[in-house]
């Protein structure tokens, strides 16, 4: 049963605003299995990131959530902050959009990986350092033993995102949420990162939620797709089905908006 790993049912997120509460995510349901990738697509403000933040309990102050979020059968909604801390980064990890601003400029990348490992697994700094070097090697950072003591600004954009991924995977999470991980990168680096993520997924079996507004990226990595529009889940199905036979107007508009180099070849 692959669908058992992660289940979201009827998730609704309400944010307080100056003009009263607004539902930014409405009745979203999906599942992610082991070794499975779900793509969440939608334009800015469609509620993609809010869904991800709701999973980790990192919503802005005052936000309310209802529905159900279950990881391996255990309900995550309504857990205490302390319980959520032990889940974040450990069972569910997250990679963010802009790797430069997502890494703390004041600390070496080594320390930032080590602190996460030690928060969940404990142990000495020495052990954590070893794990961090291995994690950097796994994402193909050359000369990892030396580079571990460098600061984020000393790496290239693609390397920084590799480091974010190394960090996210260092505690072997069962679910990885990647929120626009390739948006801030140029196209060739984007391709390398996608390749890396696919490679790591095939070795670790981690379930993945891949959030993006880029349909080309989704089609290359996701097995199933959830399309969101203004907080509503408008279409949910296998990538093949959603891309070749979209049921909803919005999905069709999204697809039509993509300039396709393979149009003539495909038809």
């Amino acid at each position: 049963m692959t669908a058992d790993l992660f289940v979201v049912e009827d998730l609704t997120v309400t944010l307080p605003t100056g003009r009263g509460p607004v539902d930014v995510v409405k009745n979203v349901s999906f599942t992610v299995g082991r070794d499975d990738t779900l793509g969440i697509v939608g334009e800015s403000g469609s509620g993609k990131s809010m869904t991800a933040l709701a999973v980790l309990g990192l919503l802005p102050r005052g936000a309310e959530t209802s529905g159900s979020i279950r990881l391996e059968g255990k309900e995550l909604l309504g857990r205490s902050e302390r319980e959520l801390q032990s889940i974040r980064g450990n069972a569910i990890s997250m990679v963010f959009q802009d790797p430069l601003s997502s890494l703390n400029p004041y600390y070496t990348v080594g320390l930032q990986i080590e602190e996460m490992y030690r928060a969940h697994r404990g142990g000495s700094r020495r052990d954590a350092r070893k794990v961090a070097i291995e994690a950097l090697e796994r994402v193909h950072i050359p000369d990892a033993g030396r580079r571990i003591d460098h600061y984020p600004h000393q790496f290239s954009g693609g390397q920084r995102q590799r480091i974010m991924i190394a960090m996210a995977l260092c505690c072997s999470p069962s679910l990885l949420i990647a929120d626009e991980p390739t948006t801030a990168l140029d196209v060739t680096v984007q391709a390398q990162i996608l390749e890396l993520m696919a490679e790591l997924q095939s070795t670790t079996g981690t379930g993945m939620i891949f959030i993006t507004h880029d349909l080309a990226v989704i089609s290359s990595i996701a097995k199933r797709v959830l399309v969101m529009c203004a907080g509503d889940p408008v279409e949910y199905g296998t990538a093949e089905q959603v891309f070749s036979d979209p049921h909803h107007d919005y999905t069709r508009t999204l697809l039509d908006a993509v300039p396709r180099i393979d149009d003539e070849v495909a038809s």
Binding site: L58, E81, G89, S93, F96, M116
Partner: peptide, 13 residues
């Protein structure tokens, strides 16, 4: 963003 990352990593408050 790095503050959000730190929280997402599950570090203590």
């Amino acid at each position: 963003n790095y503050f959000r990352t730190a929280r997402a990593k599950g570090l203590s408050r």
